[in-house]
Amino acid sequence: MGSIVVDVMLKPEILDPQGQAVAGALPRLGIEGFTDVRQGKRFVLTVEGEVTDEHLAHARQAAETLLSNPVIEDVVAVHALDATAPTEGDA
């Protein structure tokens, strides 16, 4: 099974109260040095078999119609997730 990742972020000029709440909590944990936090959304769309160009095209269509609202959000990435590669954070 293949998967496609769609990442959506609020546009830079749109206020992100959730990100601000996270930013406010970090210093309370003693984690310093981050001047801003922006929170986004990641969707993982799974398909039968390998990810094809057609799957990617459908994912882009989904990203632009349902998964994001172009008034306030940007689709920042649509790409196939490489199942064999270690995911970020793995040792």
Partner: peptide
């Protein structure tokens, strides 16, 4: 109505959360 594009703009989380 905003999501349907019948009206412009969008509604986001209250600034005071």
């Amino acid at each position: 109505l905003c999501e349907s594009h019948l009206l412009p703009g969008a509604l986001i989380r209250n600034d005071h959360r």
